[in-house]
Amino acid sequence: MSTGLPLWEVFIRGRRGLSHQHVGSVHASDAEMALRNARDLYTRRGEGVSIWVVPAASVCASSPDEKEPFFDPAGDKVYRHPTFYRVPDGVKNL
């Protein structure tokens, strides 16, 4: 039987000013190798300036069943969005 190396989730900052974004995963024996594998795999065309790797087993995710309690409450808080507010015609830079 074959030896499978652990799985790591890869996050890349595309350029300065952007946050890290999930791009996929790699297999590697440890964090140092995972970083290098991610560099070789996901930035072959200069797609990144910074990389995070996280053991896939350490990612805590919301479960799909929680979707409604987790995310729906945000749906009615329209006052969190600037478009909620009336602005008189002619008022600028607001």
Partner: peptide
């Protein structure tokens, strides 16, 4: 030895 290494050695 591993697919990731194919990519690394080619680099």
């Amino acid at each position: 030895p591993e697919l990731e290494e194919d990519v690394a050695l080619a680099n």
